[in-house]
């Protein structure tokens, strides 16, 4: 059961990797990174149960938090082109939409 889910998670990581390399748009790549982060979280949980160490769940949760903050920062960058003072709608970054 856990072996099957591990194989499925590894396959998903491979597919996300293909999407990250081939693109084509910026958002495909951010989504691919987010996907790999989520699958890493799941992989850690699956490996934890596979090797009889259920305490890996706690570790996986911290990974989810790191992943969340990282993706928020990336999306903020792609929308505003900077990390500071960016709640201003005049600062919209227009040249970064495609590639």
């Amino acid at each position: 059961m856990f072996l099957l889910s591990t194989i499925a998670i590894l396959t998903t990581i491979g597919l996300a990797l293909i999407r990250a390399i081939s693109g084509p748009s910026t958002y495909d790549r951010i989504l691919a990174l987010n996907m790999v982060g989520t699958k890493t979280t799941l992989l850690i949980v699956a490996i934890g149960f596979l090797t009889n160490r259920p305490d890996f769940v706690d570790i996986a949760m911290v990974y989810a938090l790191i992943n969340f903050i990282g993706v928020i920062a990336m999306l903020k960058y792609t929308r505003y082109g900077q990390f500071a003072n960016s709640l201003d709608p005049d600062n919209l970054n227009t040249d970064n939409k495609e590639n």
């Binding site: 990250a20 951010i30 691919a32 990174l33 982060g37």
Partner: peptide
């Protein structure tokens, strides 16, 4: 930009 994303993926794989 893709390279930055890929290096993030590299770190996550390394962490796994």
């Amino acid at each position: 930009f893709a390279v930055a994303m890929l290096s993030g993926i590299y770190s996550l794989l390394m962490a796994s």
